[in-house]
Protein backbone atom coordinates (compact mmCIF):
# COMPACT_ATOMS: atom_id res chain seq x y z
CA UNK A 1 0.00 0.00 0.00
CA UNK A 2 1.25 3.43 -0.89
CA UNK A 3 2.05 5.43 2.26
CA UNK A 4 0.34 8.43 0.70
CA UNK A 5 -3.00 6.65 0.57
CA UNK A 6 -5.38 7.66 3.35
CA UNK A 7 -7.89 4.88 3.74
CA UNK A 8 -10.09 7.06 5.96
CA UNK A 9 -10.95 9.28 2.98
CA UNK A 10 -11.49 6.44 0.58
CA UNK A 11 -14.91 5.42 -0.74
CA UNK A 12 -15.90 1.95 0.47
CA UNK A 13 -15.64 0.31 -2.95
CA UNK A 14 -12.10 1.62 -3.36
CA UNK A 15 -11.25 0.49 0.16
CA UNK A 16 -12.40 -3.04 -0.66
CA UNK A 17 -10.48 -3.00 -3.91
CA UNK A 18 -7.37 -1.88 -2.05
CA UNK A 19 -7.91 -4.65 0.50
CA UNK A 20 -8.01 -7.18 -2.33
CA UNK A 21 -4.87 -5.72 -3.91
CA UNK A 22 -2.98 -5.68 -0.61
CA UNK A 23 -4.03 -9.23 0.14
CA UNK A 24 -2.83 -10.25 -3.32
CA UNK A 25 0.50 -8.57 -2.62
CA UNK A 26 0.80 -10.15 0.81
CA UNK A 27 0.69 -6.91 2.81
CA UNK A 28 -0.66 -8.20 6.10
CA UNK A 29 -0.43 -4.96 8.10
CA UNK A 30 -2.29 -3.04 5.42
CA UNK A 31 -5.00 -5.69 5.16
CA UNK A 32 -5.52 -5.50 8.93
CA UNK A 33 -5.87 -1.72 8.77
CA UNK A 34 -8.34 -1.96 5.89
CA UNK A 35 -10.41 -4.66 7.60
CA UNK A 36 -10.66 -2.48 10.72
CA UNK A 37 -11.56 0.54 8.62
CA UNK A 38 -14.29 -1.35 6.77
CA UNK A 39 -15.74 -2.61 10.06
CA UNK A 40 -15.65 0.90 11.53
CA UNK A 41 -17.79 2.09 8.65
CA UNK A 42 -20.51 -0.35 9.52
CA UNK A 43 -19.82 -3.20 7.14
CA UNK A 44 -20.67 -6.55 8.68
CA UNK A 45 -17.84 -9.01 9.29
CA UNK A 46 -19.37 -11.27 6.64
CA UNK A 47 -19.42 -8.46 4.08
CA UNK A 48 -15.77 -7.64 4.80
CA UNK A 49 -14.90 -11.32 4.51
CA UNK A 50 -16.70 -11.92 1.23
CA UNK A 51 -16.24 -8.58 -0.52
CA UNK A 52 -12.68 -8.00 0.71
CA UNK A 53 -10.69 -11.05 1.74
CA UNK A 54 -12.51 -13.78 -0.17
CA UNK A 55 -12.69 -11.65 -3.29
CA UNK A 56 -8.94 -11.02 -3.02
CA UNK A 57 -8.18 -14.68 -2.41
CA UNK A 58 -10.30 -15.61 -5.43
CA UNK A 59 -7.95 -13.61 -7.64
CA UNK A 60 -4.95 -15.23 -5.94
CA UNK A 61 -6.48 -18.66 -6.59
CA UNK A 62 -7.09 -17.98 -10.26
CA UNK A 63 -3.59 -16.58 -10.79
CA UNK A 64 -2.06 -19.51 -8.90
CA UNK A 65 -4.00 -21.96 -11.05
CA UNK A 66 -2.92 -20.13 -14.19
CA UNK A 67 0.75 -20.03 -13.23
CA UNK A 68 0.86 -16.26 -12.71
CA UNK A 69 1.55 -16.62 -8.99
CA UNK A 70 3.73 -19.23 -7.36
CA UNK A 71 3.84 -20.81 -3.92
CA UNK A 72 5.83 -18.04 -2.18
CA UNK A 73 3.47 -15.34 -3.38
CA UNK A 74 0.42 -17.39 -2.45
CA UNK A 75 1.89 -18.06 0.99
CA UNK A 76 2.36 -14.33 1.52
CA UNK A 77 -1.21 -13.67 0.40
CA UNK A 78 -2.39 -16.43 2.75
CA UNK A 79 -0.52 -14.79 5.62
CA UNK A 80 -2.25 -11.50 4.83
CA UNK A 81 -5.56 -13.32 4.71
CA UNK A 82 -4.78 -14.95 8.04
CA UNK A 83 -4.01 -11.56 9.60
CA UNK A 84 -7.40 -10.28 8.45
CA UNK A 85 -9.15 -13.42 9.65
CA UNK A 86 -7.73 -13.01 13.15
CA UNK A 87 -9.93 -9.91 13.38
CA UNK A 88 -12.93 -11.31 11.54
CA UNK A 89 -13.12 -14.88 12.86
CA UNK A 90 -14.48 -14.08 16.34
CA UNK A 91 -16.88 -11.50 14.87
CA UNK A 92 -18.14 -13.99 12.32
CA UNK A 93 -18.78 -16.51 15.08
CA UNK A 94 -20.69 -13.90 17.10
CA UNK A 95 -22.83 -12.85 14.18
CA UNK A 96 -23.57 -16.38 12.98
CA UNK A 97 -22.40 -15.65 9.45
CA UNK A 98 -23.18 -18.31 6.84
CA UNK A 99 -20.41 -20.68 5.85
CA UNK A 100 -19.91 -22.82 2.79
CA UNK A 101 -18.95 -25.86 4.80
CA UNK A 102 -16.50 -27.17 7.38
CA UNK A 103 -13.15 -28.76 6.58
CA UNK A 104 -10.90 -30.75 8.88
CA UNK A 105 -7.45 -30.98 7.35
CA UNK A 106 -4.12 -32.40 8.42
CA UNK A 107 -0.86 -33.95 7.30
CA UNK A 108 -0.96 -37.67 8.04
CA UNK A 109 1.03 -39.63 10.58
CA UNK A 110 4.76 -39.78 9.97
CA UNK A 111 4.84 -36.67 7.81
CA UNK A 112 5.83 -33.17 8.83
CA UNK A 113 5.37 -31.44 5.49
CA UNK A 114 2.69 -28.82 5.65
CA UNK A 115 3.28 -26.06 3.12
CA UNK A 116 0.77 -27.38 0.59
CA UNK A 117 -1.67 -28.38 3.28
CA UNK A 118 -1.52 -24.91 4.84
CA UNK A 119 -2.10 -23.35 1.43
CA UNK A 120 -5.17 -25.48 0.98
CA UNK A 121 -6.37 -24.53 4.47
CA UNK A 122 -6.00 -20.80 3.82
CA UNK A 123 -7.52 -20.89 0.36
CA UNK A 124 -10.45 -22.92 1.64
CA UNK A 125 -10.93 -20.37 4.38
CA UNK A 126 -10.67 -17.72 1.70
CA UNK A 127 -13.47 -19.49 -0.15
CA UNK A 128 -15.72 -19.26 2.90
CA UNK A 129 -15.16 -22.64 4.54
CA UNK A 130 -14.64 -23.03 8.25
CA UNK A 131 -11.27 -24.76 8.49
CA UNK A 132 -9.92 -26.83 11.36
CA UNK A 133 -6.24 -27.25 10.64
CA UNK A 134 -4.83 -30.18 12.61
CA UNK A 135 -1.23 -29.49 11.66
CA UNK A 136 1.31 -32.23 11.00
CA UNK A 137 1.82 -35.89 11.89
CA UNK A 138 -1.82 -36.77 12.59
CA UNK A 139 -2.81 -40.30 13.46
CA UNK A 140 -6.28 -41.70 12.93
CA UNK A 141 -7.35 -40.75 16.47
CA UNK A 142 -6.51 -37.14 15.72
CA UNK A 143 -8.75 -37.14 12.64
CA UNK A 144 -11.56 -38.98 14.43
CA UNK A 145 -11.36 -36.65 17.42
CA UNK A 146 -11.68 -33.64 15.12
CA UNK A 147 -14.63 -35.22 13.32
CA UNK A 148 -16.39 -35.78 16.64
CA UNK A 149 -15.65 -32.25 17.80
CA UNK A 150 -16.42 -30.30 14.62
CA UNK A 151 -18.81 -32.42 12.56
CA UNK A 152 -17.12 -31.44 9.29
CA UNK A 153 -18.37 -31.84 5.74
CA UNK A 154 -14.91 -32.54 4.38
CA UNK A 155 -11.79 -34.37 5.55
CA UNK A 156 -8.56 -33.31 3.87
CA UNK A 157 -5.41 -35.39 4.17
CA UNK A 158 -1.97 -34.47 2.92
CA UNK A 159 1.31 -36.38 2.54
CA UNK A 160 4.55 -35.55 0.81
CA UNK A 161 6.19 -38.93 1.24
CA UNK A 162 5.42 -42.24 -0.45
CA UNK A 163 6.10 -43.85 2.90
CA UNK A 164 3.37 -41.86 4.63
CA UNK A 165 0.66 -41.62 1.98
CA UNK A 166 -0.60 -45.20 2.65
CA UNK A 167 -1.75 -43.94 6.05
CA UNK A 168 -4.58 -42.14 4.26
CA UNK A 169 -6.09 -45.57 3.63
CA UNK A 170 -6.03 -46.27 7.37
CA UNK A 171 -8.08 -43.13 7.99
CA UNK A 172 -10.56 -43.91 5.20
CA UNK A 173 -10.95 -47.49 6.44
CA UNK A 174 -11.64 -46.22 9.93
CA UNK A 175 -14.33 -43.90 8.56
CA UNK A 176 -15.90 -46.93 6.88
CA UNK A 177 -15.68 -49.04 10.04
CA UNK A 178 -17.40 -46.29 11.99
CA UNK A 179 -20.10 -46.02 9.34
CA UNK A 180 -19.46 -42.34 8.64
CA UNK A 181 -17.59 -42.53 5.35
CA UNK A 182 -20.68 -41.66 3.30
CA UNK A 183 -21.34 -38.60 5.46
CA UNK A 184 -18.02 -37.04 4.57
CA UNK A 185 -16.22 -35.80 1.51
CA UNK A 186 -12.64 -37.12 1.59
CA UNK A 187 -10.02 -35.14 -0.31
CA UNK A 188 -6.37 -36.16 -0.52
CA UNK A 189 -3.31 -34.42 -1.86
CA UNK A 190 0.46 -34.16 -1.80
CA UNK A 191 3.29 -34.71 -4.23
CA UNK A 192 3.13 -38.53 -4.54
CA UNK A 193 -0.67 -38.75 -4.49
CA UNK A 194 -2.55 -39.21 -7.75
CA UNK A 195 -6.09 -39.94 -8.94
CA UNK A 196 -5.53 -43.69 -9.07
CA UNK A 197 -4.31 -43.75 -5.48
CA UNK A 198 -7.26 -41.64 -4.33
CA UNK A 199 -9.68 -44.00 -6.03
CA UNK A 200 -7.88 -47.05 -4.70
CA UNK A 201 -8.08 -45.98 -1.06
CA UNK A 202 -11.68 -44.83 -1.40
CA UNK A 203 -11.21 -41.07 -1.28
CA UNK A 204 -13.52 -38.82 -3.27
CA UNK A 205 -10.82 -36.89 -5.09
CA UNK A 206 -7.14 -36.13 -5.37
CA UNK A 207 -6.38 -32.41 -5.49
CA UNK A 208 -3.24 -31.44 -7.35
CA UNK A 209 -2.92 -28.07 -5.67
CA UNK A 210 -4.73 -25.62 -3.44
CA UNK A 211 -6.69 -24.01 -6.26
CA UNK A 212 -7.94 -27.41 -7.43
CA UNK A 213 -8.79 -28.30 -3.83
CA UNK A 214 -11.10 -25.30 -3.54
CA UNK A 215 -12.79 -26.00 -6.88
CA UNK A 216 -13.23 -29.67 -6.00
CA UNK A 217 -14.54 -28.94 -2.53
CA UNK A 218 -17.09 -26.44 -3.85
CA UNK A 219 -18.23 -28.85 -6.53
CA UNK A 220 -18.58 -31.81 -4.15
CA UNK A 221 -20.31 -29.64 -1.54
CA UNK A 222 -22.87 -28.61 -4.14
CA UNK A 223 -23.52 -32.27 -4.95
CA UNK A 224 -23.75 -33.09 -1.26
CA UNK A 225 -26.31 -30.32 -0.71
CA UNK A 226 -28.38 -31.53 -3.67
CA UNK A 227 -28.47 -34.99 -2.18
CA UNK A 228 -29.60 -33.43 1.10
Amino acid sequence: MNDEVNIKDMPIDELLELMQDDLYDGYADEVVAEVNEALSRGMTPYEVLTQGLVAGMDIVGVDFRDGVLFVPEVLMAAKAMKAGMIILRPLLAETGAPKVGTLVIGTVKGDIHDIGKNLVAMMMEGAGFEVINLGINNDVDSFMGAIDAHNPDIIGMSALLTTTMPYMRTVVNTLKEKGIRRDLIVLVGGAPVNDAFAEDIGADACCRDAAVAVETAEKLMAIKREKG
Partner: peptide, 18 residues
Protein backbone atom coordinates in the same frame (compact mmCIF):
# COMPACT_ATOMS: atom_id res chain seq x y z
CA UNK B 1 13.29 -21.00 -5.88
CA UNK B 2 11.36 -20.92 -2.64
CA UNK B 3 11.04 -17.14 -2.66
CA UNK B 4 13.22 -16.57 0.41
CA UNK B 5 15.13 -13.87 -1.43
CA UNK B 6 11.91 -11.90 -1.81
CA UNK B 7 10.12 -12.98 1.34
CA UNK B 8 12.67 -13.90 4.03
CA UNK B 9 9.86 -14.18 6.56
CA UNK B 10 8.78 -17.42 4.84
CA UNK B 11 11.83 -19.19 6.27
CA UNK B 12 9.89 -20.04 9.41
CA UNK B 13 6.94 -21.32 7.35
CA UNK B 14 9.14 -23.62 5.32
CA UNK B 15 11.52 -24.90 7.97
CA UNK B 16 9.80 -24.75 11.35
CA UNK B 17 9.20 -28.50 11.55
CA UNK B 18 12.72 -29.53 10.54
Amino acid sequence: GMGLDRFPELKADYFRHY
